[in-house]
Nucleic acid binder design. Sequence first.
DNA 1: CACCGTCAAGTCGCA
DNA 2: TGCGACTTGACGGTG
Length: 418
Amino acid sequence: MAIGYACLVLGVSGTQMKSCLLKEACEEKLMDITHRNLVALDRIIDYNIHNNIRLFRISSDLVPFGSSPINHTEWWKHFDGLLKAIGRKIKDSGMRVSMHPGQYTVLNAEKPDVVARAVADLAYHARVLDSLCLDATHKIVLHIGGAYQDKEAAMDRFAENWRRLDENIKRRLIIENDDKLFNIRDVYDLGTRLNIPVVFDNLHHEVNPCDGERDEFVWIERCRSTWREQDGRQKIHYSQQAKQKKKGYHSDTIEIDRFMAFYKALNRDDIDIMLEVKDKNLSCVKCINCTAGDLNFDVLEMEWDRYKFSILERAPVLYDEIDRMIGERAGLTPPDFYKLIQRGLESKGDIESHTEAVLMVWDCINREATEKEWQAFHKRLERFRQQQTGLGAVKGFLRKLAEKYALEHLLNSYYFFL
DNA sequence: CACCGTCAAGTCGCA
DNA sequence: TGCGACTTGACGGTG
């Protein structure tokens, strides 16, 4: 069983995907961005390995305009060594990766040119995974596409276009229920008809349920049979509805009690769960820690080290409480710990608590800083306290110093982006 | 540094 | 018939 997250890591420098505008795309720029993105991917994989994360979705932005005729760089040849090295790390660590083309990749479109572009896009995604030398358990997840006022005909068109795909795309392609048109029954029917594994997405199912059977676990069990030996473990998508947002909107973070209830009811150790949530790796680490049977308390201590500045910034009283509990090393289960963290993050704090956190971070920098930096810091802090600048300006300054002096402890914390 | 409009792509629904 | 939402982050220009 693995729990994963999609596309980007929060709080790890050098892991962001770069993009460029179409009008500025030239060979040199495309190659440069592709190279930087591959280096970023390599760092993400390292991060995943170090944090015991064994499921990850690679961003489609890896190669800018990767499926557009604008990009005629042969990136897979040029970066062959780097790609193979990354793929090697993925395999050696037992990680499983996937990709997920977006809403513009419509295999069942009525217009032949739209279909042609969708095929080209799938070929691009398959080429990424092929270039990493990964087997067919590393999948490409796709939605069925448009309905065009006739779902049956639209599904038939999907089937027809699917049959014409190259085998190396077909062996990776899996399909998922969406939040508007094709519910889990539609996708399951199509999946069984074509022998394509089906990904069940719980939030899409909630927003776009099918007739008849509604129970999500029944559907997960049904979808299980669409996964063959060569496809690897069954995979599902899990997300929670953001409160006070439109239906289907992903929450900022995973509410741990609800996840644990789902996880226990699911009761499967042969399934992969891809989380779709705004805080990405943060919720992923949280869910992994809460489901690990033999969690070392050191892991919670590590997490506290990453969260503590953000908690002090917002809720100093709670900070003391959690810090004491962590110090005592007892009576704190991972879900309880994360619930306290969540409560802290939901607070706003005030200028005093903001200052307290700033000073605590400064304390980590102080011994490295020059006299000039000391002065610059206190000048900024004073301006913040007079409300002449925002907290962001002070934190930005601290971040730069943390980077300058390579203070890993601060750079690995969540302080600068939570 | 903060803010905001814009960006490759397709479909659907509403005015 | 045409335009905004979808969903989302990053870029690039401006203040």
